[in-house]
Amino acid sequence: MSLTPATMRRLMRELTELRNSPPEGIRVVTSEDNMLDVTGIIEGPEGTPYAGGYFRVRFKFSEEFPAAPPKCWFATKIFHPNVSSAGEICVNTLKKDWKSTYGIGHILVTVKCLLIYPNPESALDEEAGKLLLEDYESYCSRAKLITSVHATPRTRPPEFDIPASSSEASTSIAAASPAISLPPQPITLPVPSSLSSPRKSTSPSPPSQPLQESASNTLPSSLSSSSLSGKDGKDRVTSPSPLGTADSNVAGPANTSAAAAAAATKAVKRSAAPGTGLEKRKKALKRL
């Protein structure tokens, strides 16, 4: 395994940048003795069934990087149409649309996008794909269930104690609670430079069925516009407050407590998480 010095320098640069100003809801962990041992942590975006979860995405770089994409897979179990049970991710960016200028951050942001805009047309998990197409509620509750069981730690990963680039202005305590620190449009995608057309980069679907269309059918239309207020009344992907209201028995207490006692976030989370999980499970099981 030998990457060229230029490639190592480039990785070093990117790892530093990701550490100093990570994209919203994304952190990268590496080890000193092996910088190539890279794990990304994606915070489940609010308003998606993955909210509250922290998903680890592992990277493996080949000698041909960056000419060839790194191997990349979920190490955390997730119920998602584009992720297989072994964690493989079906996304063009990691295969045919790969460009040597892409880096770790771009991949993680793309994968985060995929959590917001799942694409049933290129399903790796056909069960999830089917549900997303036919029965959004069931898809959602099942995904929430898996998230709560497999991806929701008792305490938030410490990496998230460092603020993201977009919330650098806020204090570290405020940033520690993502639901609160989020700006008014919580799902604004960070790193705009690498995401000039996020939908295209996440969508392996043919242009005749562009993703924004399918997204507007399966997800609230607000998602495809820049306004994410959840005005269509559905509470799937919305700003923190509607989510809190509509789903108050689930997410409400945790968020409120966190807001009220920001200094004690971790403790609150710890106590809130089981309740959240149970509630979600009950709801999910009712539907099953």
């Binding site: 000419a67 996304v91 790969w98 290129s122 790796l124």
Partner: peptide, 14 residues
């Protein structure tokens, strides 16, 4: 040279 483009995993799997 750019390496050969890889096939999407969902294409292979399903």
């Amino acid at each position: 040279d750019p390496p050969e483009k890889q096939t999407l995993s969902c294409t292979v799997k399903n």
